[in-house]
Design a protein around this nucleic acid. Structure first.
Lengths: 366, 366
DNA sequence: TTTATATAATTGTACGTACAATTAAATAAT
DNA sequence: ATTATTTAATTGTACGTACAATTATATAAA
């Protein structure tokens, strides 16, 4: 490095130019720590403030980042698509109780890292997911958080493939796409349902109905947890008590299911509902039919939504760490964007059984 | 200008913030010459290098340009020319029951016109709104849908001023900022509350309590509607029945309010709750206290949230066309972006009284 | 009147000193 | 083994001095 004190070119600029050259030529590589201000002073003979001036300029220009006590580092060159710093989030139903909490978690984490989020609501329809996919790519998003739609594995992977071709990192959340290698975050649906069901069994129930949608992996896993709990307790699985459907959530349909299920009330003493929302629908229908919950039939839900905590039925349910799921998904995605080359992550967050008052031992009808 | 030498906030930053404020508030206007470094030194008592540091930052940020010997000038904000097709939406609480529905309405309308939305959640905090404001501008959004935070009129208008300076159209929704000329969409909070209250009066109630937050215009208007209904029916307004607070929604606080309100149950026969959510909180607390709703006390809510429709209390409430509000806000905004030069629009969408079962004539206690 | 030159105002460059804040790593305490 | 405390390295903030470069305006020279 040679600084010409007599040149009309300012010395800070000479130094700055030299430093950029070092970076451009790869002598200082991305993530490298460059010499400290003190070292540069000795190397160049310039004053610290002059060195600082040059370095500050390069920080502004995006070549360097600095951390107190740690030093100054060469930044990773932003990927081709400009410096948009936008993450796309495809949610399958913004009206579902947990979408807001998830978005809050993901949004807070994004903000912390100076990213913004583009929100795309798919209404759980593949066609809309496909539409938004194209738009997100057009906008040059840096990464995608994807809640798979209730479509086939093939169709969901087709969307992922589009991102993969453009090297846009993706993290799938809530549901997984079986067999597809992609970072994912889910909650432990299997164990959550296992605990729920075991709880019912411990309270003395053996004839336990379950209702859920088989279209999405999360609810499939809950079904498996339910089955495992039964077989672990040597209770035969009665397939007539497993009331599944293939549809996305439509309220009126679930009113029908609820009626259908309750019409067979003599076959079971407890119900595992696919979600809190469904549990409350069943409760409402039961009430109309003169069936009391939990006195006549015990019931458990899944989700533990805050918005429902004023309901007089204190529902025993499973709490899912939704905010944390949003946070964690964003963290992993940003790490990927930063090029951190860890192995595939399939994180399963712990859920927690919340025992309230919607379960009583069977036959305690008053 | 006051610089606090003992503040943990760096002095250069205090000065820089002050200077930005002057510009944002229009005290220093575009093309104005601002004071010289020397003058600022005398004004602030800071060293020249400190002043320079602040000014340099603002040059980088695009607020100022400097010319040797001539001085420092406020720049004319560049008109956004990017081809981003992104709309920023600042929501004040994504967890509130109606945010998802609003986002769906706005999102669907945006999609239809090939726009995407960047979602920014402010948690009703001005500081976060300010932060996101800058980010949205950086992203080159074409327009903004803004739910004003529960901050002062001055602070909210300050945010609007930033957009105005850059000719970014804004539509405010849900709440209005009094005295500020900006397109807005609200629902008819006044008439909604008027109808609610009138309904209670028609059922025979005269002593009607109301609880809401006075921090936001929407709830202030509801209070006015309540008052008007009373005076139109020649019922004196009892200020002890108006239980207001200045806080943003925090659940535990509202549990306190509910207890406080219900402790005075002999003073009234009906309650107008600020929202459905608050109504259900009151219901829960009432239940614990052995007070039956509607048998002992009638109650009405506000919002008509779908997620609550499984609650056994069939709440008489006011339905707000939230989806339509989102749609309409987006339509107006896109028109503005397309340069349609209509006059200022302050649209008020009709709300609708939904009579369910939470109101009984007073004194019908069984 | 025109042209060259000096003047003064203002920002730009460069040096230097001193202490504060942050935080990874080392050390001590439990 | 864990937790709390200290330390030391590095950048951050703030002060200050001195002189250079730029350039509109005033002044002097042609």
């Amino acid at each position: 490095m040679l600084i010409d004190k007599n040149s009309p070119i300012p010395q800070y600029f000479q130094f700055q130019t030299w430093l950029v050259d070092q970076i451009e030529q790869g002598i200082f590589k991305p993530n490298d720590k460059i010499p400290t201000e003190d070292e540069f002073m000795q190397m160049s003979g310039l004053a610290r403030s002059t060195i600082r001036q040059a370095i500050q300029n390069l920080v502004v220009q995006g070549y360097l980042t600095r951390k107190r006590r740690l030093g100054t580092f060469v930044t990773i060159p932003p990927s081709v698509s400009g410096r948009s710093n936008i993450i796309g989030i495809l949610v399958h139903d913004i009206r579902s109780g947990y979408a807001p909490e998830f978005l809050r978690g993901a949004g807070d984490e994004a903000s912390k890292n100076h990213y913004s989020i583009i929100l795309s609501n798919t209404d759980d329809l593949f066609s809309r997911a496909e539409f938004h996919t194209n738009r997100l790519i057009d906008h040059g998003v840096k990464g995608i958080i994807f809640m798979p739609t209730a479509a086939s594995v093939e169709k969901n992977s087709q969307l992922l493939e589009r991102f993969r071709r453009r090297s846009i990192p993706v993290v799938t959340v809530d549901r997984i796409i079986p067999g597809v290698k992609v970072d994912s975050i889910t909650t432990d649906n299997f164990f959550g349902a296992y605990e729920l069901t075991s709880h019912l069994i411990q309270e003395g129930h053996t004839r336990i109905a379950i209702t859920l949608s088989t279209r999405v992996s999360s609810e499939m896993q809950r079904l498996e947890g339910y089955k495992k709990a039964l077989s672990d307790h040597n209770i035969p699985i009665d397939s007539t008590l497993i009331i599944t459907n293939q549809e996305r959530f439509i309220e009126t349909h679930y009113l029908q299911y609820a009626k259908f299920i309750l019409s067979q009330r003599e076959k079971f003493t407890a119900i595992v509902a696919g979600s809190d929302r469904i549990a409350y629908i069943i409760y409402t229908v039961a009430d109309e039919m003169g069936i009391r919950i939990p006195e006549d039939i015990s019931m458990v839900g899944y989700d533990d939504l805050v918005l429902h905590n004023t309901h007089p039925l204190a529902l025993t349910t499973v709490h899912q760490p939704i905010y944390e799921m949003g946070q964690e998904a964003m963290k992993i995605l940003l790490d990927r964007i930063d090029g951190k080359d860890f192995e595939l992550k399939n994180i399963v967050l712990q859920s927690k059984l919340i025992v309230r008052g919607s379960v009583l031992p069977p036959g305690k009808s008053t």
